[in-house]
């Protein structure tokens, strides 16, 4: 979006520009993200309009404007501290828990602003599942962990809970491993299993959007692979927004990729375009590991 002129691509490196955008950003000047034309056709579920965020005096996000395509996996990439996680946590208002946070602009879920005072933040969070960087199972049984979002909603019927638990665990590809020990503590699971448990917990209440905050960064390669497979599977049912440091992962699991730098959205487009023929040289250098 924006009025940046999108020039037809002529192949990587054929017309290499200098890292002009990075300089503009470092200088703090205003800048419009390069958004690929393919995104214009996608139906949106969530969009940010010139969304900015401050932690006290320091600004973490600068006028982010982007839309999240419905039913697709979108990856947020960028160097550490570029505001990927902040953006993700702004979507379900987890930043409310931090003192001194100020926002400007809007984020809209299905067209409704989520920062409107009329919005019940608890209801909002129920529409958005979230998985964190470190697996954070609760100190209770596997079963109780999975059905936690239903329990706090007041669901008490055993049959409903058991059904939901099985469905979520199957979707999270964990059912076969834990079906015989649902009553045991979740803390006895391995790291990868715990993370899949957290995914099951995040999807048990059928959220509209699934927010994944570097879900594999604390896991070993095998567990990472399983989670990636899982994300591809559940992407059929949910809209997924995933923050990752791992380029290969972003390329493998996502349909769209947004590259962020120093709190700004830099380039946003279909993943294969971002990873094979990005518009901006900064993006190209970042995804090939030469920048950032």
């Amino acid at each position: 979006m924006g009025d940046a002129v999108i020039e037809p691509k002529k192949g990587l490196g054929s017309e290499r520009r200098g890292l002009r955008v990075a300089e503009v950003i470092r200088a703090g000047e205003s800048f419009d993200a390069e958004v690929h034309a393919e995104l214009a056709d996608e139906p949106e579920i969530l969009r940010a309009d010139t969304f900015s965020l401050w932690y006290g005096e320091s600004r973490a996000l600068y006028d982010i404007s982007m839309k999240l395509p419905r039913g697709k996996v979108t990856a947020l990439i960028g160097p550490s501290g570029c505001g990927k996680s902040t953006l993700l946590r702004s979507v379900n208002r987890m930043n409310d828990l931090v003192d001194g946070v100020r926002v400007d602009g809007e984020i809209r879920l299905e067209g409704e602003s989520i920062y409107d005072p009329r919005v019940d933040v608890i209801e909002l969070r129920k529409r958005l599942g979230m998985v964190f960087q470190k697996p954070n199972p609760f100190p209770m049984s596997i079963f109780e962990n999975v059905v936690y979002p239903l329990r706090i909603d007041g669901e008490r019927r055993k049959g409903v809970l058991a059904q939901a638990c099985e469905r979520a665990l199957r979707q999270a590809a964990l059912w076969d491993e834990v079906k015989d020990r649902l009553k045991q503590s979740a803390l006895g699971l391995s790291g990868g299993q715990q993370q899949r448990l957290c995914i099951a917990r995040a999807i048990v209440a059928d959220p509209e959007v699934l927010l994944l905050d570097e879900p594999c960064s604390a896991l070993d390669p095998v567990a990472t692979m399983r989670i990636e497979e899982l994300i591809s599977e559940i992407a059929e049912r949910y809209t997924v927004l995933i923050v990752t440091h791992n380029m290969q992962q972003a390329a493998r699991v996502s349909n769209f990729t947004a590259f962020m730098y120093l709190g700004r959205l830099v380039e946003y487009g279909p993943s294969e375009a971002i990873f094979s023929r990005p518009i901006l040289p900064e993006t190209e250098q970042y995804v090939t590991g030469r920048f950032g």
Binding site: N92, E123, R125, F132, Y148, I152, R201, A205
Partner: peptide, 19 residues
Amino acid sequence: SIREGSIASGASRWQTIRR
């Protein structure tokens, strides 16, 4: 992280404390 997990699941502060 456990508190955050609970809040992100849509629990209120008190539900988080209690459960």
